[in-house]
Nucleic acid binder design. Structure first.
Lengths: 173, 173
DNA sequence: CCTGAAGCGGACTCTGCAGTCCGCTTACGT
DNA sequence: ACGTAAGCGGACTGCAGAGTCCGCTTCAGG
């Protein structure tokens, strides 16, 4: 990655920026051609760095996952497990809903990228809250994320916070 | 519809049956070719009866919508508004989740077909339950359906009942 | 500078879909 | 039984997007 020629590095950056914007706007349905056009490069250039569209999507997603991971770690350090969980849910939702298209990409990928770590943190967060009696126990820790995400995506543009409240209320013990 | 030649009527039936099965399996992504193949007809035959894929989808969906409508009317007649609503939700979910692909088609169409009536019934059902104090008031009657449907579709295959419970709990006053 | 390797980009292929068209077939009234 | 209009089906078109390839351009080291 450091071995790239200067023009190549510049183009790579442009591609990633464009991809982020286009995926954010159109979700997984975004086309490589559109990204290349916005980046001001030929689409062959995109494919040289990212052999498939999914590869590019992962690259874009990875930055977001990193942010979520930091939040999750912080939440795990909270004194009150219940509050840690609900705060995290709200903050994560705020982040994801800033770029709904990318949110859809995450759902689309089944979170394959480097999300094993994040998923692990999420599970810990949930089961800690369950043990503390703040969360209903009849749901698997791994299932909470998908449920919340689905509710967020189903909401009409401005109203996802209401949907989130409802689902979080439903999750309470 | 009664003016059809006998072979045409038979083919029409075959097409609808095949479409139902294929849409149920693959959702809105199903291809006309696959439906035609399963029906044992050329795809030109499908297009003669249903000029666009959406037309065919509507035809398939309509039967399901009719069933839901009957349920909704029954639920509106229930003594307890809250119970009427929650029973309807569970029964409707049971019906829809029997054919998840068709459920996806319904979501895909934004329920255009003849669903104005059903939507109206749904709104009445919700606002009646809200007035009776059985349902939280900070959600529009028209928003309840999408939220519930999204949760159902997000559930891993066998577990949608759990997801439904959670969302319905969240909806309680 | 000059050169060769790295990089570029767009023309090209391939795939899969919706939707059209028309020569052939078949049901059905007489 | 036969004439004809209704019906059939598959070859065809058009489109859009993913991924490939290769002749040309540009960077960077000597």
């Amino acid at each position: 990655m450091a071995e790239l020629r200067s023009d190549a590095r510049r183009n790579l950056e442009r591609v990633l920026d464009a991809a982020e914007r286009v995926f954010a706007a159109s979700g997984p349905a975004a086309s490589i051609d559109e990204i290349a056009r916005l980046a001001g490069v030929g689409h062959g250039t995109v494919f040289r760095r990212f052999p498939t569209k999914d590869d590019l999507m992962y690259a874009v997603i990875e930055r977001h996952v990193a942010q979520l991971q930091a939040m999750a770690e912080e939440a795990l350090a909270a004194d009150d497990p219940g509050e840690g969980f609900f705060d995290f849910a709200r903050r994560a939702a705020e982040l994801m809903m800033g770029t709904p298209g990318i949110h859809k990409c995450v759902v689309h990928c089944g979170e394959k990228p480097g999300a094993a770590e994040l998923e692990h943190l999420g599970r810990k967060l949930v089961s800690r809250a369950q043990r503390a009696g703040a969360l209903r126990r009849d749901i698997e820790p791994a299932e909470v994320g998908p449920l919340v995400r689905a509710a967020l995506l189903a909401a009409p543009p401005g109203h996802w916070r209401r949907y989130l409240d409802i689902v979080l209320d439903g999750l309470r013990a």
